[in-house]
Amino acid sequence: MTRRDAALYLALAASWGTAFVATDAALDTVPPVPLAALRFDLAALLLVGVVLATGRSFRPRGWGDWAPILVGGLCNIGLHHALLFAGQRTVPPAVAATLLGLVPVLTPAVTRFARPDERLSALGVAGVLVGFGGVVLIADPDPSNLAASAGVGLVLASAVVWTVGAVFTREDDAELGGLALQAWMLLVGALALDAAAFAVPGQSFAMAAFPPETTLWVLYLAVVPGAAGFLVYFRLLDRLGPIEMGLLEYVIPPFAAVFGWLVLGEGLEASTVGGFLAVLVGFCLVKAGALRRYARARLGG
């Protein structure tokens, strides 16, 4: 990972951390599936407009283009966000962000079959397990609260879908440029979410209301964590691979918690802080080799 990649990695984590809080605020007046659909309708139109305005090729030429478009669009954009937004109706932003810590746990297992050349070391596996322990500590689902437990289940299901999409979205044989591919992925996901908003009972666009505050949140979701965020994500995914990008879910929760505290006035429980520390320890174990190399380089300089 270059310094530029590291900077983009942290910027993406911050952006997606704020998205959990923005989503929570927008869900006050917009049902989850229409909210996800509108967010990616706008994001897709923005990226498509950029592609066309810059004269880039926009026509997929074969399965090498269509495979990542369909997998990324339907899994990482469509189904993932429908499940995630539905779960966030009863799950606080920081908890939802941390529940997606299941992604780094699932990714090495799925990658082992799909990409046998990419795998974690034994220390890395230990780090993933410690990190997931932190996830469980923060989530702390309440069996007596069925609504909250159902929300936790939906968010965890969104993590599974995200993992499948990340592992199987490969651009090795693509002929289209990266920007055009990302525009198509957002467009496919947006159309899938539009269809779901019309087909799923209780998720109609007609049930949504857009006071000024909600409108601003939707625009923010579409532009910053939406169009810009997914453009950065799929670029980094292509360069760094699914395991490295799966670890992003361990970097997002602190940003979500801090932003929730600043914007929504949400408190931080002792168990949440303890969970964050466990996630940090797990992340350091996974990245132990890179941290050692960085320390040697700094000491040597």
Rank of each mutant, 00 (worst) to 15 (best):
M1G: 11
M1Q: 13
R3P: 15
R3E: 15
D5W: 05
D5G: 11
A6F: 15
L8D: 11
Y9Q: 02
A11G: 14
L12V: 03
S15R: 03
A19N: 06
V21W: 03
A22E: 03
A22I: 13
D24I: 00
A26I: 12
L27P: 00
V30W: 04
P31T: 08
A37W: 04
F40H: 00
F40E: 00
F40V: 00
L42S: 05
A43S: 04
L46Q: 02
L47V: 13
V48N: 04
G49I: 01
G49Y: 01
V51W: 12
L52E: 08
L52V: 04
A53M: 04
R56Q: 15
F58E: 12
P60A: 08
P60T: 09
R61W: 14
G62K: 14
G64Q: 03
W66T: 10
L70Q: 03
G73E: 10
N76L: 07
L79M: 12
L79G: 05
L79C: 08
H80W: 14
A82R: 02
L84H: 02
L84A: 09
L84N: 09
Q88E: 15
R89C: 01
P92N: 08
P92F: 09
P92A: 08
A94E: 10
V95M: 09
G101L: 02
L102Q: 03
P104N: 03
V105S: 01
V105I: 15
V105L: 15
T111Y: 05
R112I: 14
R112N: 06
F113E: 00
A114C: 12
A114H: 07
A114M: 11
E118Q: 15
S121Q: 01
A122L: 08
L123F: 12
V125W: 11
G131L: 03
L137S: 06
A139H: 09
P143T: 02
P143F: 07
S144D: 10
S144F: 09
S144E: 07
A148P: 04
L154N: 01
L154F: 10
L156M: 07
V160R: 15
V161A: 11
V161C: 07
T169C: 05
R170C: 08
R170P: 12
D172F: 02
D173E: 14
L176S: 06
L176Y: 11
A183M: 13
V188E: 09
A192L: 07
D194E: 14
A195K: 02
F198W: 15
G202M: 01
S204P: 01
S204I: 02
F205I: 03
A209L: 14
P211I: 00
E213P: 06
T214G: 03
T215N: 00
V218R: 01
V218I: 05
L221H: 06
V224F: 01
A227I: 00
A228P: 03
Y233M: 07
F234C: 11
L237N: 09
L240T: 07
L240C: 04
L240H: 04
I243C: 04
E244R: 13
L247P: 09
L247R: 14
L248M: 10
E249P: 09
I252G: 06
P253L: 05
A257C: 13
V258T: 06
F259L: 13
G260D: 14
W261I: 15
W261L: 15
L262S: 12
L264I: 07
G265W: 05
G265E: 13
G267W: 11
G267T: 11
A270L: 14
S271G: 07
G274Q: 11
G274T: 01
F276C: 13
L280T: 09
C284G: 14
G289F: 06
R296L: 11
R298I: 03
G301R: 13
